[in-house]
Nucleic acid binder design. Structure first.
Length: 368
DNA sequence: CAGTCAATAT
DNA sequence: CATATTGACT
């Protein structure tokens, strides 16, 4: 990269600043702006998380007081790490333990709260260094995978912050193959090499419970990922993930992590034709607390359009949710040539989706 | 654009 | 394996 492009990069750095202490937030933001960084500041970790997850804006570095009152600090951290963004942790207290945890989970640097100008002026160096490092790593990745073999790769991918079960398993595996006490060595290595993981949320009973709650509120025929996403209000949980889960639930009966073990019973009930927006058909086992079935007067204040003939597009404000796709059944006679008419924009699914993280709900306390 | 599905990838 | 992603369709 030429000096010129470095120069360009420096002045294009977008900082996501997160701090629930609004005073500190403002002053730090001001300083950052003085350094001519682009700054977006939010107070809550969950807000930052949503910003990152939405993918609507690009960030280069995250500075966060991870001690967010909404308890999403570490979720934010993980999200940022998943997105290969360097995270600088700003702590208001002298909390070595927190700092350690953050570092373990991929934070780039921990600093004491009143941010200093000298430090901020150096931010760009961190960003650049990280970017370079990430690129290098990616190269190594494409080059080295075949050679290195599975076990190491698996280890690196699976040694998430959270799941000790896998970690233990893998450690055993490693011991089996090479009997050295390299555990710590690997940890160290991983710290430097950064933990990279294909993030994959776990649909725990809690999370699924929220899902089901949301679904209960939307009725049959109105059950769409976007609405569910809104209702669930779980920062970082994306529409795609919800859609995927929904698909899964509608197809086979989804089993929670618990009963997954207990009953390997495959009652493959034949699938009937389904309608769009339909509810998933789950076994009772998958209903956590929410008793949806009991009172079918869920339709409390729901005065929606009768779902019938709204077909003629309602030119309602486009900014708000207005639509109800008017699918009828699937499987029309199809195969009717729909010529090249609209190949025009064979677009990707909307980029509102990004990665998420496991144990979303463990750290979540806002139970509705 | 958003939902949906089957197929496929991780 | 459970989830994520994709492509084609409505």
């Amino acid at each position: 990269m030429s000096n010129a492009s470095y120069h360009a990069l420096i002045h294009d750095i977008h900082v996501l600043l997160v701090d629930h202490d609004s005073e500190g937030l403002i002053s730090t933001a001001k300083m950052l702006e003085l350094c001519s960084y682009k700054v977006t500041s939010v107070e809550l970790a969950s807000s930052g998380l949503s910003l990152l997850s939405s993918g609507h804006s690009h960030f280069d570095i995250v500075m966060a007081n991870i001690n967010s009152p909404d308890l999403h600090g570490f979720n934010l951290l993980q999200q940022a790490v998943d997105m290969d963004l360097p995270v600088i942790l700003m702590s208001d207290e002298d909390n070595a333990f927190l700092a350690m945890r953050a570092l373990q989970n991929g934070a780039f640097l921990c600093m004491q709260k009143p941010a200093k100008m000298e430090m901020l002026t150096c931010l760009w160096q961190h960003v650049l260094r990280e970017k370079k490092w990430i690129c290098k790593e990616k190269e190594r990745e494409v080059a080295g995978i075949e050679i290195r073999g599975d076990f190491r790769e698996e280890y690196i991918n699976d040694i998430g912050v959270d799941n000790m079960k896998n970690e233990d398993k893998l450690k055993e595996k490693i011991r089996g193959e090479k009997r050295k006490n390299e555990d710590e060595e690997y940890d160290l290595e991983n710290r430097n090499k950064r933990i990279k993981r294909k993030s994959c949320i776990e649909w725990t009973q809690q999370l699924h419970g929220k899902f089901m709650d949301a679904i209960a509120q939307l009725g049959e025929g109105r059950c769409f990922p976007k609405e569910i996403q809104d209702l669930m209000n779980v920062p970082g949980l994306t529409r795609m993930q919800i859609a995927s889960h929904l698909q899964k639930c509608r197809n086979h009966n989804w089993l929670g992590p618990q009963e997954r073990k207990s009953l390997p019973t495959r009652t493959h009930t034949q699938e009937e034709a389904r309608k769009f927006g339909s509810l998933p058909r789950l076994g009772k086992t998958s209903f956590p607390r929410c008793q949806i079935e009991e009172n079918h007067e869920i339709n409390r204040g729901n005065e929606f359009m009768p779902n019938d003939g709204g077909h003629g597009n309602r030119p309602i404000a486009p900014t708000l949710r207005s639509h109800q796709p008017h699918y009828e059944p699937f499987l029309s006679s199809s195969s009717n040539a729909t010529p090249a008419t609209n190949f025009s924009l064979n677009r990707r699914h909307q980029a509102d989706d990004f990665y998420s993280f496991p144990d979303i709900d463990d750290l979540i306390c806002n139970k509705n």
